[in-house]
Amino acid sequence: MNVYSVVQGLAKNLDNVSDPVFSKRMLGDGVAVEPSNSRIFSPVDGKIIMFFETKHALGIRAEDGAELLLHIGIDTVELNGKPFKERVKIGDSVSRGDLLLEVDFPMIKKSGYDTTVMLIATNRKIQLIKDTGQISIYEPVFRLL
């Protein structure tokens, strides 16, 4: 099953993420994107299974059981949810392309935080499709194995 980008921007390999939790793949493999848009979309059809109170991270269980972590920014938990407007809640069913969040990335940058968005497969191996260059939400970034 293909997993699509959650945001438009510049895709980059996880090796280049400044947080070792992601660059060392402690939670799983995936991709990172430097966002050029404030809207975050569902990468798959599935269900919202986790949403941090601070709105900086959420979990999606795909229809085939794959679990994906979407983490917005690095250390943005410290912003206590201020730059995030959630459009879904735990238990909601989502389709690929559904709007999940709107994010005030300029506020995150102004506050001194990294805006990189990570999409991680936490319970599956992946095959990368695209982890560098410009990407849109219409392009798959990896395939679940």
Results as ranks from 00 to 15, higher is better:
42 S>I: 08
43 P>R: 10
44 V>L: 14
44 V>A: 15
44 V>C: 09
44 V>G: 09
45 D>P: 11
45 D>G: 00
46 G>A: 14
46 G>Q: 07
46 G>R: 11
47 K>W: 13
47 K>N: 14
48 I>S: 05
49 I>G: 00
49 I>W: 14
50 M>T: 13
50 M>V: 03
50 M>S: 08
51 F>S: 05
51 F>E: 11
52 F>I: 02
52 F>Q: 00
52 F>C: 08
52 F>T: 10
53 E>N: 12
53 E>A: 11
54 T>P: 07
54 T>W: 12
54 T>A: 11
55 K>S: 13
55 K>I: 11
55 K>V: 07
56 H>D: 01
56 H>C: 14
56 H>F: 02
57 A>D: 00
57 A>E: 08
58 L>S: 05
58 L>Y: 10
58 L>R: 01
59 G>C: 13
60 I>F: 08
60 I>G: 00
60 I>N: 02
61 R>C: 09
62 A>I: 05
63 E>C: 03
63 E>G: 03
64 D>N: 15
64 D>C: 00
64 D>W: 01
64 D>M: 01
64 D>F: 12
65 G>F: 10
65 G>S: 08
65 G>L: 15
66 A>F: 07
66 A>G: 12
67 E>Y: 02
67 E>A: 03
67 E>Q: 04
68 L>T: 11
68 L>I: 08
68 L>C: 09
69 L>P: 03
70 L>I: 15
70 L>G: 05
71 H>R: 15
71 H>N: 13
72 I>D: 01
72 I>E: 07
73 G>L: 06
74 I>L: 12
75 D>P: 00
75 D>V: 00
75 D>F: 12
76 T>W: 03
76 T>S: 06
76 T>K: 01
77 V>Q: 00
78 E>F: 13
78 E>I: 00
79 L>Q: 03
80 N>Y: 15
80 N>P: 10
80 N>V: 06
81 G>M: 04
81 G>T: 11
81 G>R: 13
81 G>Q: 14
82 K>H: 15
82 K>Q: 15
83 P>W: 12
83 P>M: 02
84 F>R: 01
84 F>Y: 04
85 K>L: 14
85 K>D: 09
86 E>S: 09
86 E>I: 07
86 E>Y: 09
86 E>C: 14
87 R>D: 11
87 R>F: 04
87 R>N: 08
88 V>E: 06
89 K>F: 02
91 G>P: 11
91 G>W: 08
92 D>R: 02
92 D>C: 07
92 D>H: 09
93 S>K: 06
94 V>P: 04
94 V>I: 12
96 R>D: 13
96 R>A: 10
96 R>Y: 02
96 R>H: 03
97 G>K: 05
97 G>F: 15
97 G>D: 10
97 G>W: 06
97 G>C: 08
98 D>F: 04
98 D>K: 03
101 L>Y: 03
101 L>E: 15
102 E>N: 03
102 E>P: 02
103 V>M: 13
103 V>I: 09
104 D>N: 09
105 F>T: 05
105 F>H: 03
